[in-house]
Amino acid sequence: TFELKGKVGKVVKIAEDHYLVESEGDKWIAYSDEKLSLGDRVMVVDVDGLKLKVKRIP
């Protein structure tokens, strides 16, 4: 299986209740415990079905 946990991506869209993150050339629906901005670099900390939980990284 394709393992996304630990992968790095970038926030490419902000929606009302989720983010769109591009990682490894694909776009994924993501959510975070912190507020993210367009262009933020993020790391995948968990995968919930087809949704990614991400956190901001420097």
Rank of each mutant, 00 (worst) to 15 (best):
E22M: 06
L4R: 02
L36F: 05
D48V: 13
W28D: 01
K7W: 03
E3K: 01
D33R: 13
L52N: 02
K5A: 15
L4N: 13
K10M: 09
V21Y: 05
K53N: 06
V54W: 04
K13Q: 06
V47F: 09
D48N: 08
G39H: 11
L38H: 07
D33Y: 13
K55W: 11
Y31F: 10
E24S: 04
D26A: 14
K5G: 14
W28I: 05
G25Y: 04
L36Q: 02
G39V: 03
F2R: 15
G9F: 12
G49T: 07
D48M: 11
V44P: 01
S32E: 00
Y19W: 07
G9A: 14
L20V: 08
G49D: 05
K13D: 11
D48H: 08
K35N: 07
S32F: 02
K55E: 14
V45C: 05
L50E: 04
V47G: 03
I29G: 07
V11P: 00
L38V: 07
K7V: 04
V47I: 08
K27Q: 06
G6M: 01
D48P: 02
E3Y: 03
K51W: 13
D26H: 13
Y19N: 02
V45F: 06
A30Y: 00
K51V: 14
G25H: 04
V44A: 03
V21E: 00
I14L: 09
V45S: 04
Y19I: 07
L20I: 11
W28L: 06
D26C: 14
E24H: 03
K55I: 14
L20P: 00
V42Y: 01
E3M: 01
E34T: 06
A15W: 12
Y19D: 01
L38D: 05
K27V: 07
A30L: 02
D46F: 03
D17C: 11
L50N: 07
Y19T: 05
V44S: 02
I57Y: 08
S37L: 11
K55P: 00
D33C: 14
A15Q: 09
H18C: 11
L38M: 10
K5F: 15
A30K: 00
V47S: 03
G9Q: 02
R56W: 08
K7I: 03
L50I: 09
I14E: 09
D33G: 11
H18L: 12
P58K: 06
K55H: 10
I14C: 11
K53Y: 13
Y19G: 01
G49F: 10
F2G: 15
G25T: 04
G25L: 05
L50S: 07
V8P: 11
R56C: 05
V42A: 05
L36T: 01
E34I: 05
I29N: 08
A30V: 14
V8K: 06
M43Q: 05
A15L: 10
L50R: 10
S23R: 02
L4D: 15
K27A: 07
K7E: 05
D40T: 13
V21L: 06
K5W: 15
G9N: 01
V12I: 08
L38G: 04
R41H: 09
V44Q: 01
G6W: 03
K13W: 11
P58V: 09
G6Q: 01
V11T: 04
S37W: 12
D40F: 12
G6S: 01
K35R: 12
S37D: 08
V21M: 14
M43N: 04
L52M: 03
Y31E: 12
I29H: 13
V8R: 03
V54N: 00
I57L: 10
K5Q: 15
G9M: 15
T1F: 15
V44H: 01
G6N: 02
D17P: 12
I14H: 06
L38S: 07
V45A: 04
M43L: 14
K5Y: 15
K13V: 07
V8H: 04
L20F: 09
L38T: 08
S32A: 11
V8D: 08
K13G: 10
S32V: 03
D46G: 03
V12A: 06
K53E: 06
K7T: 06
I57Q: 07
H18G: 12
A15P: 04
